[in-house]
Every structure is written in structure tokens, then in C-alpha cells.
């Protein structure tokens, strides 16, 4: 943990890092754009740069930022809710629920009817998964119970998705689209996807002031209620936020694993467990993390965002388990 005095600089530092990554994401690609060209492109004074920025890099950047913030915040919420620092949307199967919902929507052809149906299907899938997690693992449940519930759900939802994939009625394009969702990535994201994920900003605003009651909840729900927290309402709001944040992120980027586990964890190690500090940091830090991972994914070699986050997050998770044991 960094010293208490230094911790207050964490948010400015995180914002700076995000700004640098943002600039990097706009500059780097098949065609390198200097800061001067980026500036000219943003004001449409440079036609080619403007096209690259406004049609390719900016939407991708916005989706990356929104997805990162959403998944990281969702992980932070789940860790406080379940009072377990290993809880996260990916491990608990909530992401997989969102993906299954999206896949079913694509396979059924709903996604072509209206763009809105895709995130809605993802939300329904995520809500069902969250419900199942709640039944399988009560609050304050042991790590083992939570992880086992997650394994079971991930397997079940994986089977649903696999079945949809293998059922022969699907066209090649739809299968490719589904595969995209399962692997998680930000290729070919458009402003429509940004619009789909935009409610994440609103949810972040709702989450912002909940940091203080989250502190109390993360140390025990009865204790929190005894100290004056409206635990029933807080839990409902938090779980709703975590589920919808994950679903929205999943519906525009597919299943991107480990963000909700890695980012809050690293931040907690750096600045301590107080959520008033962690909530804004998780939003900014999650955005920066996904942006960085996506830049690695864009560097080529067939990498995709979901693959990069898993390559980073998998070993990190194993390290955490070892540390807990």
C-alpha cells in the first residue's frame, strides 16, 4: 500500500495514465498519427486523419473506455457485496450469462431487427446468472462456494452457447458473429456500439456516491444495517448496477475476462480498501487497463482484447489464490 498522504494523488495519476493511453490509442495503428495530425484530424482539417479517427479509432477508444470502467466497477461492487475479494463478473458467470443472452439474440436473428435487442438480451442473460449466483452462494459465502457456483454457471452457459453454435440452422456470418462475442474484442466497433454502451456513464454516476455505505457493507451486512445503512436498498441497487454494467459491457465487447478481478485488486493493494477512493479509481483504472490491453491486441498476431486480458488476468488470479492459501 502506498502511504496515506500519497493515496490522494492516485486519482490524478490514474486520469493522467488514462489520458496518455488515450493519446496512444489514437496515435498507434496501421497508420501512425502524430499528435499534430490527431489534432488536425479531430477538427477535420486533415481528411485522412479525420476518417481514421472519427470512423475507426475514436469509437473503438470510447467502447474500450466504457467497457473497462463498467467491468472494473462491476467487480468492485461484487467484491463488496459478497465480502470476498475474489468475486468478479467473469468468475461468477455473470459475463457468461450476458454473452449467452447476446448469442441467443444473434442466433435468433433479433440482433438484426433492432440494435437495442442485443444489449437487452445480454441484460436478461446477466440478470438470470446473477439470480443463480445469489441462490447458489449466499452473501458472505466462502471463496470455495463462490468459485464453485461460478464454475457450474460458466459450464452451463458455455453449453448453451456451444449448442447455439453447433445447431446447423445458423449461417456462417452468424457463427462468426457469435465467435466474436465469445472471444471478446473491440474490432469494428462503431458509434452505434458507443451509444449502446453509453448508459454505463449514467450508472457510474449512480455508483459514485455509494462508496461510503459500500465500506460498511463490505465488513458485514448486519453490522452495516446496525450502523444506519439501508442494507436492503443498497444491496438491491448495487447488484442491479453490477449486473447491468456487466451486461452492457458484454453486449458491445463480448466476454472480456478478469478486468473486474485484476483492477479493483491492484487498486486496493495500492490505496487501501476505502470505496470512496476506490469507486472513481476503479472506473478510471478499468478504462486505462482495457485501453492498454486493447493496444496490445491491436499490435497484431491475431490477439484479441479478451485473449490479452485473460493472459494478464489468469496468472494474476493464480497468484491471488496462492496468496490467500
Amino acid at each position: 500500500m502506498i502511504p496515506r498522504g500519497a493515496a490522494r494523488f492516485a486519482l490524478p495519476v490514474a486520469i493522467t495514465v488514462l489520458a496518455v493511453f488515450t493519446l496512444g490509442a489514437l496515435a498507434v495503428g496501421d497508420m501512425w498519427l502524430s499528435p499534430a495530425r490527431i489534432w488536425a484530424g479531430l477538427w477535420r482539417e486533415d481528411e485522412l486523419a479525420a476518417t481514421i479517427l472519427w470512423q475507426i479509432r475514436m469509437p473503438r477508444l470510447c467502447v474500450a473506455v466504457l467497457v473497462g470502467a463498467a467491468l472494473s466497477a462491476s467487480g468492485l461492487i461484487m467484491q463488496a457485496y459478497f465480502r470476498n475479494s475474489l468475486a468478479s463478473p467473469g468468475l461468477l458467470g455473470v459475463s457468461a450469462g450476458g454473452a449467452a443472452g447476446a448469442v441467443v439474440a444473434i442466433a435468433a436473428g433479433w440482433a438484426t431487427v433492432s440494435l437495442l435487442l442485443l444489449p437487452m438480451a445480454a441484460i436478461v442473460g446477466a440478470v438470470l446468472s446473477t439470480g443463480a449466483v445469489l441462490i447458489l452462494a449466499r452473501r458472505g459465502a466462502s471463496t470455495e462456494r463462490l468459485l464453485l457456483a461460478g464454475i457450474a454457471l460458466n459450464a452451463l452457459l458455455g453449453a448453451v452457447t456451444s449448442y447455439v453454435l453447433t445447431s446447423s440452422v445458423l449461417t456462417y456470418e452468424r457463427n462468426a458473429q457469435i465467435l466474436f462475442w465469445l472471444l471478446g474484442g473491440l474490432e469494428d466497433r462503431t458509434w452505434e456500439h458507443v451509444a449502446m454502451a453509453a448508459p454505463i456513464c449514467l450508472l457510474a454516476v449512480v455508483l459514485w456516491p455509494l462508496g461510503r455505505p459500500m465500506d460498511l457493507l463490505s465488513l458485514g451486512s448486519r453490522e452495516a444495517q446496525s450502523l444506519g445503512v439501508d442494507v436492503v436498498r443498497l444491496r438491491r441497487v448495487l447488484l442491479g448496477l453490477a449486473t447491468v454494467l456487466t451486461a452492457l459491457a458484454t453486449s458491445v465487447a463480448g466476454t472480456v475476462g478478469f478486468v473486474g478481478l485484476v483492477v479493483p485488486h491492484v487498486l486496493r493493494l495500492l490505496v487501501g480498501p476505502e470505496h470512496r477512493r476506490l469507486v472513481p479509481l476503479a472506473l478510471v483504472g478499468g478504462a486505462a487497463f482495457v485501453l492498454a490491453c486493447d493496444m496490445i491486441a491491436r499490435s497484431g498476431g491475431g490477439l484479441r482484447l479478451g485473449i490479452v486480458t485473460s493472459l494478464v488476468g489468469g496468472p494474476f488470479f493464480l497468484w491471488l489464490l496462492r496468496r490467500q492459501a
Binding site: 465480502r83 470476498n84 463490505s218 465488513l219 458485514g220 487501501g272 480498501p273
Partner: peptide, 8 residues
């Protein structure tokens, strides 16, 4: 008295 997180 069980605490999951390391509050001061």
C-alpha cells in the same frame, strides 16, 4: 469479528 478487507 471477521474482516475480509484491510481497513485501518
Amino acid at each position: 469479528a471477521q474482516f475480509e478487507f484491510g481497513f485501518s
